[in-house]
């Protein structure tokens, strides 16, 4: 029994961090954006563009961390397009988000053509399991160096939103733009800046994909991970710390299928491979009660109106 349970457990734990890190960054970026009352579906495009930018930056400069920086800049710029255009009158943020998603993926495919073949320097893992004799444990504890950054961002966001003047302004803009205007706060400026900051955070997720795991640029790299992460924000009820747990849960779910097959449990692997998507559906079904407003949802979100 131990031959099966322990390896699967380690693989799922390791996988939760390996596979879940991009989810974490994108969902944190979306969480911040939505707290200010705006939806950015374009983060899928941000994820694809920033993963390409990260790989390109690392390849051209020879430094993986330069790639990370470039990914954040690319993410902030693309999200900035969304932020600025959504500030115009009668622009729907959902439609705009889809346009930005297509713009981001299109740009990334176009600019990323010469980047599919080469290899770039990747981020070195933080090895925590060095003392352990088990190769599985060592592998599970070779942690993505961006993951701790994600945890810090989640903690910081949670604290800032709850306890600071800045957080209060963001939440007020998200809950009632009229109240914010009455206070003399520029709603557009706040939303544009949170959208851009959210894009920069999501950009870290892109960097994690191309510079750590799986560690190369390919056009099918994201395959909808950005969209799943956006759905995670609803699951996490717009709370940054819950985004962390939700991302780990989804990462682990993604690792479950291969882990079970590797130990010889291979009936119904289609089902196991579908677990993350089934989870997304389940969340959306559970989240849409017709009778009441979603708990924790900023009331300015256009899904709420």
């Amino acid at each position: 029994m131990n031959d099966i349970v322990l390896p699967v457990l380690w693989a799922v734990l390791g996988g939760a961090i390996r596979v879940g890190t991009p989810f974490l960054f994108v969902s944190l970026g979306e969480c911040l954006t939505e707290q200010s009352g705006r939806i950015n579906l374009g983060l899928e495009g941000v994820l694809v563009l920033s993963s390409m930018a990260a790989f390109g930056g690392a390849y051209l400069s020879g430094s993986a961390w330069a790639g990370v920086a470039l990914a954040m800049v690319a993410g902030a710029l693309l999200a900035g397009v969304h932020g600025v255009l959504c500030g115009l009158r009668r622009v729907n943020d959902i439609a705009m988000g889809i346009a930005v998603m297509m713009l981001g993926t299109g740009l990334a495919f176009y600019l990323g053509k010469p980047l599919i073949q080469p290899q770039a320097p990747t981020l070195q893992p933080i090895v925590l399991g060095g003392a352990s004799s088990s190769a599985q444990l060592q592998a599970a504890l070779s942690i993505n160096p961006l993951f701790p950054i994600g945890v810090v961002i989640a903690l910081a966001l949670a604290w800032l939103l709850a306890n600071t003047r800045w957080g209060l302004i963001v939440r007020m803009v998200g809950d009632s733009s009229d109240a914010a205007r009455a206070q003399g706060i520029s709603v557009n400026r706040v939303r544009t800046s949170t959208t851009m900051a959210g894009g920069a955070i999501a950009g870290l997720g892109g960097a994690s994909l191309t510079l750590f795991y799986p560690g190369s640029w390919n056009e099918l790299l994201s395959s909808g991970q950005g969209l799943i992460a956006i759905a995670l924000v609803i699951f996490a009820r717009w709370r940054p710390l819950a985004c962390l747990w939700a991302s780990l849960l989804f990462g682990g779910a993604g690792a479950l299928g291969p882990a079970l097959q590797s130990v010889g449990i291979n009936s119904a692997y289609y089902l196991f491979n579908a677990v993350p998507y089934a989870l997304t559906l389940l969340i959306l079904i559970l989240a849409c009660t017709p009778h009441r407003r979603l708990q924790g949802a900023p009331s300015e979100l256009s899904v709420q109106r």
């Binding site: 390896p7 693989a11 390791g14 996988g15 390996r18 596979v19 592998a139 994909l209 795991y213 799986p214 560690g215 190369s216 390919n218 099918l220 790299l221 395959s223 991970q225 993604g254 690792a255 299928g257 291969p258 882990a259 097959q261 590797s262 491979n273």
Partner: peptide, 10 residues
């Protein structure tokens, strides 16, 4: 890509 990496690791 992500699943292939995960399969290889497992």
């Amino acid at each position: 890509p992500v699943k292939e990496a995960e399969a290889t690791n497992s």
